[in-house]
Nucleic acid binder design. Structure first.
Length: 415
DNA sequence: TCTGGGGTCCTAGGACCC
DNA sequence: TCTGGGGTCCTAGGACCC
C-alpha cells in the first residue's frame, strides 16, 4: 500500500508554528510580490477566500474580518519542509518527496496501517509543529483521493477494499482527480462523466484516444492497478527558470540589467547544485499584461553557449547579450526571467574548438563563491552586475522572520 | 496602485535521412 | 493516373501539477 502524507495548509501552518496565537484565526499567505492568496487556513477558507485570488481585491474584506496576512517566506517553508520529510524518512523504508508539502510512502510490510498512520501524524506534529493528513490506497492516485477524504475527516483514511473504493470514487467530483485539469474536466462533464467512478468505467480506447496514455494511466490507477511508480531519487531538472515580477514597473535599463544578472546567477546556482550545466539560455522581458492603457510587449531571446556552463560570469554575459536584442527604450517593464535548458552533467562537457576559456579557473572561482555564500549567506559575494540598490526587488510588506534560517532572527524563548 | 513562480510529460508535424 | 517505405530528431503547443 501507498500513503500520501500532505501538510495541511502548509505555508499558513509554517507561519503558525512561530505565532501560535494565530491558531483558530483566519490566516493567509500571499504569493511573491504580495500578489495572490496562495495558502489559506481553514478559517480563511470558510470566509469564502478563494485560492489564487488577487490580494488587492480582498484587502478590505480581510481587514474587516480580521484576516492575518503574510508575505511568502520560501526560505522558512523550504526549511520546515525538510524537517517534515526527515521525520517521514525515519518512519518509512521508502519515501518519494513529491512537492514541498507532500510525500508518498511505500508501506509494504507494515501491519495495522491505521494505527501506523495515526502515530506518524502525531510524530510529525510533535517534531515539527506541522499538522498533516494521511491517505492510503494501493495506487498513488487512490492515495491522493484518500488524502482528500482524510482532510475532511479525522486526518487518516484508507481505501482498502473494492466497496469503499467504489463509494469514495462515486463521491469524488471528476475535476478533483489527480491529473484531470480544467480542460479534461469540461470535456468529461460534456459526456456526463461527473465523478471518478464513472471515469474509471469508461472504455480504455476512448480514454487513450482522447486523453493520451496519461489519462489512461490515471484510469487504471483508479481501478486499483498501480501504474505510477515511486521515485525515491529526484531526477535532475531538464529546465531551470528564475523569473520574477518586479516590485514596481521599470523603465531604467540599468535596473533591468541588474535583475536579469541576478536571475542568471540564481540559475547558475541551481545548475551547480544539481551538478549540471546548460547549453541554452533564454531571457524574456514583458510589460504589464493587465494594463488597460499600454500595449503589451512580450519578447524573448535564446543564446547558445559555446560550452555548456554553470558559471555566474558566463551566464550573466550571455544573458546581457540576449537582453540587448530585445530591450526597447521607453517601455514600462513588469517582469523578466532567465531560463536555462539543454542541461548536461557538469563532469562530462563537450569542448569547443573555437572557444577559448579556462574552465579550471572558472570552476575554482565558483567553488570559492559558493563556499563563502553558503557560510555567510546568499549574495555575500556577488557580481557588481547584480547591483545592490534592489529597486526592482519584490514587494514583501508582511514578511515573517527567518526563524529557522537566519541566526539573527532565531526565535526567542522567554524564561 | 495592486493579478506568482517553477516544473513535467505527451503529441503532432516538419525536416531530414537512407 | 501514377508519384515507396520506414525511420529519427526537434520543436511548438497543450495539458497538467504544486
Amino acid at each position: 500500500m501507498i500513503a500520501l502524507v500532505d501538510c495541511n495548509n502548509f505555508y499558513v501552518s509554517c507561519e503558525r508554528v512561530f505565532r501560535p496565537e494565530l491558531e483558530l484565526k483566519p490566516v493567509v499567505v500571499l504569493s511573491n510580490n504580495d500578489g495572490c492568496i496562495i495558502s489559506r487556513s481553514n478559517e480563511a477558507k470558510k470566509l469564502g477566500i478563494a485560492m489564487g485570488e488577487p490580494a488587492f481585491k480582498r484587502e478590505k474584506f480581510m481587514k474587516e474580518n480580521g484576516v492575518v496576512c503574510f508575505s511568502s517566506n520560501y526560505a522558512l517553508y523550504g526549511d520546515m519542509s525538510q524537517r517534515v520529510m526527515d521525520t517521514l524518512r525515519e518512519a518509512a523504508p521508502e519515501i518519494e518527496v513529491y512537492s514541498i508539502d507532500e510525500a508518498f510512502l511505500n508501506l509494504a510490510g507494515i501491519q495495522n496501517l491505521y494505527s501506523f498512520a495515526e502515530r506518524l501524524r502525531e510524530k510529525v506534529k510533535k517534531d515539527t509543529g506541522i499538522p498533516v493528513s494521511i491517505g492510503i490506497g494501493n495506487t498513488k492516485s487512490l492515495a491522493k483521493i484518500a488524502n482528500k477524504e482524510a482532510k475532511n475527516g479525522n486526518g487518516v483514511f484508507i481505501i482498502d477494499n473494492p466497496h469503499i473504493r467504489k463509494a469514495i470514487l462515486m463521491n469524488t467530483p471528476i475535476g478533483k482527480v489527480w491529473g484531470i485539469g480544467r480542460r479534461h474536466q469540461k470535456r468529461l462533464l460534456g459526456y456526463n462523466i461527473d465523478n471518478a467512478y464513472r471515469f474509471s468505467q469508461l472504455s480504455d480506447n476512448w480514454v487513450k484516444k482522447n486523453m493520451t496514455v496519461v489519462g489512461h494511466r490515471i484510469q487504471r490507477e483508479l481501478r486499483g492497478e498501480p501504474c505510477i511508480s515511486m521515485e525515491q531519487v529526484p531526477p535532475a531538472k531538464k529546465v531551470i527558470a528564475t523569473t520574477r515580477a518586479f516590485g514596481k514597473k521599470l523603465t531604467d535599463k540599468s535596473l533591468i540589467k541588474e535583475a536579469v544578472a541576478t536571475y542568471a546567477v540564481r540559475c547558475a546556482e541551481k545548475l551547480r547544485k544539481q551538478q549540471s550545466a546548460a547549453n541554452l539560455l533564454t531571457v524574456f522581458i514583458h510589460t504589464d499584461p493587465f494594463s488597460a492603457t499600454e500595449s503589451v510587449y512580450y519578447k524573448s531571446q535564446t543564446a547558445i553557449l559555446p560550452i555548456a556552463s554553470n558559471h555566474n560570469t558566463v551566464l550573466v554575459k550571455a544573458a546581457y547579450k540576449a537582453l540587448e536584442t530585445i530591450f526597447i527604450e521607453g517601455l514600462k517593464y513588469k517582469k523578466a526571467g532567465v531560463i536555462v535548458e539543454a542541461i548536461v552533467p557538469e563532469n562530462n562537457l563537450q569542448g569547443n574548438l573555437f572557444f577559448e576559456g579556462n574552465q579550471a579557473k572558472l570552476n575554482i572561482l565558483s567553488e570559492v563563491n559558493d563556499s563563502i555564500n553558503r557560510r555567510y549567506g546568499r549574495d555575500t559575494l556577488r557580481l557588481a552586475a547584480q547591483g545592490n540598490k534592489k529597486e526592482w526587488k519584490l514587494r514583501q510588506q508582511k514578511l515573517s522572520k527567518g526563524y529557522t534560517t537566519k541566526l539573527d532572527e532565531i526565535i526567542d524563548v522567554k524564561s
